[in-house]
Design a protein around this nucleic acid. Structure first.
Length: 200
DNA sequence: ACACCGATTATCT
DNA sequence: GATAATCGGTGTA
C-alpha cells in the first residue's frame, strides 16, 4: 500500500459534478475531532447538480441561509440536518456561485496502516457498517459546526491512493427524493460493487 | 423479505 | 404550519 496523497482543491473546482461523484468512490476521508482521528473509504455517493436539478436544495437558484454554503467554491463542506435527526455530509463542487454538491452516503472501515503516518497516533478504528448518510456522520463525528469549512484545512481531509486500481462501480438513481419528479430517475448515484448499500 | 411508522427540529412558506 | 437528500424498530410473511 502506497502512502495516500491529499486531493487538491482543483479536483473539486471542475464543472462535472456527476463524474466527480463517481471518482470519489475509493477515496479516503479523515476526520479529526478534539485530537481524535477517525477515517473511512468512500463507498457510496450522489451528485446534486445545482439550480437545474429538482432534487438540489439550490433548485431554481434558491439562496437561503442554509443553501448559502452550496454557493461557495468547490472543496467546501456542506452539512445540514435532515428530518431533524441526522446530519448529512456533502462536498461542494464547481466554481463559487455554482451550487453543485456531492452527498457522501456510505463508507467502509479502514485500518491504521492505510492512513497517513501523521494521523496514526490518535487513530480510533470503528467496526460495523456505515451504509447510509446519517450513519457515517455519526461514525466519523461530523456535525453541524463542520458546515462551510474547507476540506484539508484542519478538521476534515480527503486523500486518494495513487496506485490503487479503481473499484467496480454500480450506477443507480438517487434515494429519497421522490419530490424531484423526473430528476428522481437521473443516474447520479454511485457505489462500490463490493459494498452493500442500505438500499439498492 | 418487505411495509409501515415514529422520532425530532431547522428550515422554508 | 408543513416539510425533509434518514434510521431503527415493529409487525406481517
Amino acid at each position: 500500500m502506497t502512502e495516500p496523497v491529499l486531493v487538491e482543491q482543483t479536483f473539486f473546482l471542475r464543472d462535472d459534478v456527476v463524474s466527480i461523484a463517481l471518482e470519489l468512490i475509493g477515496k479516503l476521508l479523515i476526520v479529526k475531532n478534539q485530537g481524535v482521528v477517525k477515517a473511512g473509504i468512500i463507498a457510496e455517493t450522489e451528485a446534486y447538480a445545482g439550480i437545474g436539478d429538482k432534487a438540489s436544495h439550490a433548485y431554481g437558484g434558491r439562496r437561503t441561509t442554509r443553501t448559502e454554503t452550496l454557493y461557495r467554491a468547490g472543496g467546501t463542506v456542506y452539512v445540514y440536518l435532515c428530518y431533524g435527526v441526522h446530519h448529512l455530509f456533502n462536498i461542494v463542487t464547481n466554481q463559487e456561485n455554482i451550487p453543485h454538491a456531492i452527498l457522501i452516503r456510505g463508507i467502509l472501515p479502514v485500518n491504521e496502516e492505510a492512513i497517513p503516518e501523521n494521523f496514526r497516533d490518535r487513530f480510533e478504528a470503528w467496526n460495523g457498517t456505515a451504509n447510509g448518510p446519517g450513519k457515517l456522520t455519526k461514525k466519523l463525528g461530523i456535525h453541524a459546526e463542520h458546515n462551510a469549512i474547507m476540506l484539508n484545512s484542519g478538521s476534515i481531509w480527503l486523500y486518494e491512493f495513487p496506485e490503487s486500481h479503481p473499484f467496480e462501480i454500480v450506477t443507480t438513481s438517487r434515494v429519497g427524493i421522490d419530490y424531484a419528479g423526473k430528476d428522481a430517475y437521473l443516474p447520479y448515484r454511485f457505489y462500490a460493487r463490493h459494498y452493500k448499500p442500505a438500499k439498492v
